[in-house]
Design a binder for these strands. Structure first.
Lengths: 135, 135
DNA sequence: GCCGGGATTAGACAAAGTCCAATCTTTGGC
DNA sequence: GCCAAAGATTGGACTTTGTCTAATCCCGGC
């Protein structure tokens, strides 16, 4: 799940996103590690060598990537949104002590007994969060 | 699920919470309707007739109620936390268009295929959010 | 009714995220 | 390769949610 510059450009183009400098930097940070990062962490990482990307751009870009299905939002911490470069169907393990987030593949996971949806509604997704604590 | 003043006092006492004026007002707002309310909505509702409860107290009280297991936090909207007076095991249906939150009883709902937890960790809870959209 | 400890308060503060208008880049047509 | 238009980026002000603090208030036990 690590990409070189050309692959990143292709990835963005495939999603209809113009590959600018800043977007490539942000995409690189996201896809070069398989972690769940918050906007402020991404802002720090992107500007680690040379400050060249603003806060506004980081937020714009993350929202854009999310809208284009390139990344997913993970909402487990009321303080901040995390971004997940893994768009395969999966769920999350959330350690409420450390804040650590781990993926749970959706493969052999099944939910039974969900009620019928009210008419005129479509399911957008089912998110499962297993909240754990260090003993 | 509606309580009179005496029942509310008993409810707080049972959870080891001193029943003050403001706490009773807040408990009343929470338990007299079976909705999922955010802190700012509770602040408004509590002060509807006479302004008598401050923002700080609303936040203090909600955190206290949550820590004592009187209410539950629902984290589905990155913008604000909702509070749920229903402490029975259940999950949530979240309409991403309207923001409406509905309970899904956990009775006949089962999740199979969850992986083993890493050693030294205990499950604190499993939250399922079905995100729906109005067609 | 008095007293002490816990509860409440206004308002300052903090952090996450949005908005804006000016400026800079990218891109497609030539 | 060059140019203009469309789109992207920017700093900084702003908003919103929630926390903190130190002063004041009030509840319950005596």
């Amino acid at each position: 799940m690590s990409y070189n510059r050309h692959e990143l450009i292709a990835l963005l183009r495939r999603h209809g996103i113009a590959p600018t400098h800043q977007r490539l930097e942000i995409a690189n940070v996201l896809f070069s590690r398989c972690e769940h990062l918050a906007a402020d962490q991404i802002l720090t990482l992107v500007n680690e060598r040379h400050a060249e990307t603003s806060k506004a751009t980081v937020y714009n870009t993350l929202n854009l990537f999310r809208d284009c299905g390139l990344i997913r939002e993970v909402i487990v911490d009321p303080k901040r949104v995390f971004y997940d470069p893994n768009t395969e169907p999966h769920h999350h393990l959330y350690n409420i002590d450390t804040g650590e987030i781990t993926d749970i593949p959706a493969n052999d996971l099944a939910v039974s007994g969900l009620p019928e949806l009210p008419p005129g509604m479509v399911t957008e997704g089912v998110d499962i969060v297993v909240r754990v604590r260090t003993l």
